Simulated assay, not measured.
Amino acid sequence: MTISCAHTIIVVKSKSITKILSYCFDYYKPAALANTYEVSMVSMLDKDDWSVPEFVLEEIVLPPRYKKMPG
């Protein structure tokens, strides 16, 4: 399954091109999804096992300055 821009699909179909896959960005092809899970990840159950760089620990994250109003 591939996902492409709706405009691209319309143009490609109007030109009677049957190989739409070549007009899709590689990011949306099945191989990209498979590559996402290629590297195994090991969960760290204990917070003591975490290795956090010092500059990350020093970072101060503030809430947004303005509250977005509904609507």
Rank of each mutant, 00 (worst) to 15 (best):
70 P>W: 07
23 Y>C: 03
44 M>H: 15
64 P>C: 00
22 S>G: 04
43 S>F: 13
44 M>P: 06
42 V>P: 04
23 Y>L: 02
4 S>W: 09
60 I>H: 02
52 V>N: 00
62 L>Q: 06
61 V>S: 01
56 V>R: 10
19 K>Y: 05
50 W>I: 00
15 K>P: 08
32 A>L: 04
5 C>M: 06
55 F>V: 09
21 L>M: 11
36 T>F: 14
52 V>D: 02
43 S>N: 14
67 K>R: 11
7 H>G: 13
62 L>R: 08
69 M>S: 12
53 P>T: 00
2 T>A: 10
57 L>S: 08
19 K>H: 08
62 L>E: 09
25 F>E: 15
66 Y>C: 12
50 W>A: 08
68 K>S: 10
14 S>Q: 15
24 C>W: 01
70 P>H: 04
9 I>H: 01
62 L>W: 01
34 A>Y: 09
13 K>R: 10
20 I>G: 06
64 P>Q: 00
32 A>H: 03
17 I>C: 03
60 I>P: 02
29 K>Y: 05
29 K>P: 04
35 N>D: 08
46 D>I: 07
19 K>P: 03
5 C>Y: 04
23 Y>I: 03
4 S>I: 13
34 A>W: 05
60 I>R: 05
69 M>Q: 12
66 Y>M: 11
63 P>I: 02
68 K>Y: 07
53 P>L: 00
9 I>C: 03
35 N>R: 06
29 K>A: 05
34 A>H: 12
34 A>D: 09
6 A>N: 06
7 H>K: 12
29 K>S: 07
60 I>S: 01
27 Y>R: 12
35 N>G: 04
28 Y>K: 02
5 C>I: 12
29 K>W: 02
10 I>S: 10
32 A>I: 03
63 P>N: 00
26 D>M: 05
